[in-house]
């Protein structure tokens, strides 16, 4: 219980406030985040192309919660689809983050050492 004093229209009230745990977060769909296909072509007979990047691919996000190890680009840098732009450490493992489209870096949102959530924005391209 916390005691607070509130003044409304010149009148003072003493109130006791109970601080509850943060409200349960809303259920989130486990939509897998896209990450750039940086692999050798697959032996599906005549596999021809990777799926085109998702809408909003100019916002580069973290595929899982973790710590930013490095942001490998700076504002103004030109990046090509498939370039490594950041590294996240999570689950004792480094995860490299790649650009999904060509563009130039408009904004670097996260910095080395930051904790990011799954889906947290790292970099914005223009």
């Amino acid at each position: 219980m916390k005691k607070l004093r509130i003044t409304v229209d010149g009148k003072t009230y003493d109130v006791a406030v109970e601080v509850l745990e943060a409200a349960a977060p809303a259920a989130t769909a486990s939509t897998p985040a896209r990450s750039a296909a940086a692999f050798a072509p697959i032996a599906v007979p005549g596999a021809r192309s990777a799926p085109p990047p998702a809408a909003g691919a100019n916002t580069i996000t973290s595929p899982l919660a973790g710590k930013v190890v490095s942001i490998d680009v700076a504002v103004g840098d030109a990046v090509k689809s498939g370039d490594q732009v950041a590294t996240i450490e999570a689950m004792k493992m480094n995860t490299f983050i790649y650009a999904e489209i060509d563009g130039s870096v408009d904004q670097v949102v996260a910095a080395a050492g930051d904790m990011v959530e799954e889906g947290g924005v790292l970099i914005k391209l223009d």
Binding site: S30, M93, T95
Partner: peptide
């Protein structure tokens, strides 16, 4: 696949 989500097992 450690390159993706550190190779963790998730729902999907």
């Amino acid at each position: 696949q450690p390159c993706v989500k550190a190779g963790t097992l998730d729902i999907d």
